[in-house]
Write a protein that binds this DNA or RNA. Structure first.
Length: 691
DNA sequence: AATCCTGGAGTTTTT
DNA sequence: CTCCAGGATT
């Protein structure tokens, strides 16, 4: 097993008193306020161990929920390391995986059929766009407003029906109407979106007492990580599952709330005390991760925000190195500097590539960095992001898989119907679309209908029918238990490789893109095998899933879990590159945060939208990832939209304590001054910290 | 009616 | 870079 940077630290043998209290308190609902680096994952995993070993609770009655796939994997691995065979049946998943599980078991109540599709953001946007287009409205701003508003309603468990006649404005009434149609569309496509994975289970549990009882009896103890990231709907799910009982432990830190933009409601931390009588609150304030200069800077920065709870982080790790603040002429020089620094430090000390992380605000910032790291032959790994799934070749193959598993998935059908070219163009699809709307069925479903032949030209109808026949054959192969053969046959039939080569700028590029497809196929093959083994070793009928193996794989793919895991297993010893958001929960000896500038961090949209506090928390999360060494870099100019623009250092820089910093490359007096200050400030800092 | 080509515009964060 | 629209071409 490869060690991940986040798990390099061996599980602590000794817990401090607060941690021990948190592990052992099981008599009622518990809130653990865990500052950055205070060992919260240890507390959660040790608590699971305590529940199973000391309280003799069967592992299958314990469920732990987190937000990201990465966090779930880490927690699962650490719980298994502690419990060994006793971990059997333990459920560790993301909120969305848990929701998916509930949805799958209660399919009829969800109004979906087996094989339903999970739509990603792009798919739902495309559907909304189509709905708006049919209204004759194409303003793209309305599309954005619509999507955000609908997502907001869904994450607050607001149904279209409950909005009837309650709109505050004409536009809101309009969006509510689109929302209703959107929901109907999803149902008819046998699809759900990401928000539905939480919203539908909540609705089912609210409306069906017996189902609620069943799930409550299945989960006797629920642990929730990163609680500040829950939205209203997710909190409702937690409340439903826990019910009147006391088996709940949530862990959170309001200073690390960085998902408000997608509906996270850190107030849920406060709400907990109102909803759960006798809630016990334990604070973890000792930081085991960072040196004091880093911690002091993080504390100073976050002091500029309001807090739900006050806490003071401290550490026994000593002063440590000064935080390097490096300004460079442009973004090119910035990445050059990062690459050189990594190489220098690696040679200068006993460091591995995996000891370094480069954190960025936006995914696009990784591009230049990747080029530079490649040029310097530094092995790196970009985690998270959408890069792989954003590739057209991957989207195509995924869409084929989805149509195979769920013919009614219009979003996927539209993507592949004419890729490669089948001479099925817009006018044919328009006619098919009109017909399907009138018969209230999916596009694919309309192909088989009798009346369609009259509305289409004979040629067009023939092309659609032959596509249908082809899919039916493939589906037979899948049902025969040979999904991999079906996939290979599918891609061979359409000569997807040839099509890629032809449609790429060069043969070499085309071949590279087909390599991506092969990687996807290989991953699917592995996962199918894994499932096969699991199914054979599984005698617990409670856990057997109704869905087919291919559907299970597809779901895992849509939740972005599977490939991440594979990449992680291969990321042996590489520099970690990721967004600040993706870095939460991880730690690295050496951390670089690049683009520490106004407009970028805080991001220009946040400056306009007046959500600086959340940006500050984002910077806080980034800073607190560093164990020993932190470097903030910024460019004086940066190419944006074609021309060079001047960039100012982030306002957050001024909020950091000067004596902890070592400024370089600013070309002003502060450079030398701060260096001097750093040298003589050590004693002062020690004195200040002791107070 | 389908496909190919060109130019223009816009980049936050994620399950 | 990558998505889109719209116009020219087959």
């Amino acid at each position: 097993m490869n060690q991940q940077p986040g798990s390099q630290r061996a599980p602590k043998q000794q817990l401090n008193p607060a941690q021990r209290d948190a592990v052992r308190y099981v008599d009622g609902p518990l809130l653990v306020l865990a500052g950055a680096g205070s060992g919260k994952t240890s507390v959660i995993t040790r608590k699971i161990q305590y529940l199973v070993r000391e309280c003799e609770m069967p592992a299958r009655q314990v469920t732990a929920v987190t937000f990201t796939n990465k966090a779930a994997r880490e927690m699962r691995a650490r719980a298994r390391a502690l419990l060994g065979d006793d971990a059997k049946g333990l459920q560790v998943s993301t909120f969305h995986q848990l929701g998916l599980k509930i949805l799958q078991r209660e399919l009829p109540l969800a109004g979906r059929k087996s094989g339903f599709s999970i739509l990603d953001d792009q798919d739902s946007t495309a559907i909304l766009k189509d709905l708006l287009l049919r209204d004759g409205d194409i303003a793209s701003t309305l599309l954005d407003i619509c999507r955000n508003q609908i997502s907001h309603w869904k994450s607050h468990a607001v149904s279209p029906a409950s909005l009837q006649g309650k709109a505050d404005s004409v536009q809101e009434a309009r969006i509510a109407e689109v929302y209703a149609r959107y929901e109907r569309a999803l149902a008819s496509y046998n699809a759900v979106d990401f928000d539905d994975l939480i919203a539908i289970p909540v609705r089912i549990l609210a409306e069906h007492e017996e189902v609620l009882k069943r799930w409550q009896s299945r989960i006797r103890y629920l642990l929730v990580d990163e609680y500040q990231d829950t939205n209203v709907c997710q909190y409702m799910l937690v409340q439903q599952l826990v019910g009147e009982r006391s088996g709940l432990c949530v862990v959170g830190d309001d200073d690390q709330s960085i998902y408000a933009w997608r509906g996270a409601n850190p107030e849920n931390l406060k709400q907990l005390a109102k909803d759960f009588k006798g809630l016990k609150v334990i604070k973890l304030e000792q930081n085991y991760r960072s040196t004091n200069r880093i911690l002091q800077s993080a504390n100073a920065l976050i002091a500029n925000n309001d807090h739900l709870f006050e806490k003071k982080l401290w550490s026994e790790k000593g002063q440590g190195d000064a935080i390097v603040v490096q300004q460079l002429p442009d973004e090119e020089a910035e990445t050059e500097y990062i690459g050189d620094e990594i190489l220098h430090r690696k040679i200068g000390s006993n460091l591995q590539f995996r000891d370094f992380a480069v954190l960025v605000r936006g995914n696009h910032q990784t591009r230049l960095l990747e080029l530079k790291l490649q040029a310097k032959q530094i092995p790196y790994q970009v985690t998270g992001g959408t890069s792989f799934f954003a590739r057209n070749e991957i989207k195509d193959v995924m869409a084929y898989l989805r149509v195979l598993a769920n013919p009614d998935d219009d979003a996927a059908f539209l993507r592949i119907v004419n890729v490669p070219r089948r001479k099925i163009g817009v006018s044919t699809l328009e006619a098919l679309g009109d017909y399907s709307k009138s018969r209230e069925c999916s596009l694919y479903g309309a192909i088989g209908e009798m009346g369609l032949a009259q509305t289409l030209s004979e040629q067009a109808h023939k092309r659609l029918s032959s596509l249908d026949g082809w899919f039916q054959n493939l589906r037979r192969v899948v049902d025969n238990g040979e999904p991999m053969r079906a996939l290979q046959e599918m891609l061979d039939d359409i000569d997807y490789r040839g099509w890629l080569v032809q449609n790429s700028s060069s043969t070499a590029v085309g071949e590279r893109r087909y390599e991506n497809v092969n990687f996807l196929l290989e991953s699917i093959r592995n996962e199918l095998q894994k499932q096969n083994q699991a199914a054979q070793g599984n005698t617990n009928s409670f856990e057997i899933d109704a869905e087919s193996p291919l559907e299970a794989v597809l779901n895992k793919l849509m939740l972005r879990d599977m490939l991440e895991q594979q990449a992680e297993e291969e990321a042996d010893n590489k520099v970690q590159v990721m967004t600040l958001h993706a870095s939460k929960g991880l730690e690295f000896p050496h951390v670089f945060i690049i683009g520490f500038e106004e407009q970028l961090l805080p991001h220009r949209n946040s400056i306009e939208g007046d959500t600086i506090d959340e940006e500050r928390r984002l910077a806080y999360v980034g800073i607190t990832r560093a164990q020993q060494h932190l470097t903030l870099t910024m460019a004086r100019t940066r190419k944006q939209f074609g021309d060079q623009q001047r960039c100012a250092p982030s306002r957050f820089l001024e909020e950091l304590p000067v004596e902890a910093l070592q400024r370089k490359g600013f070309g002003d007096k502060m450079d030398a001054a701060s260096n001097e200050a750093t040298g003589r400030a050590t004693l002062d800092n020690l004195r200040a910290l002791l107070e």
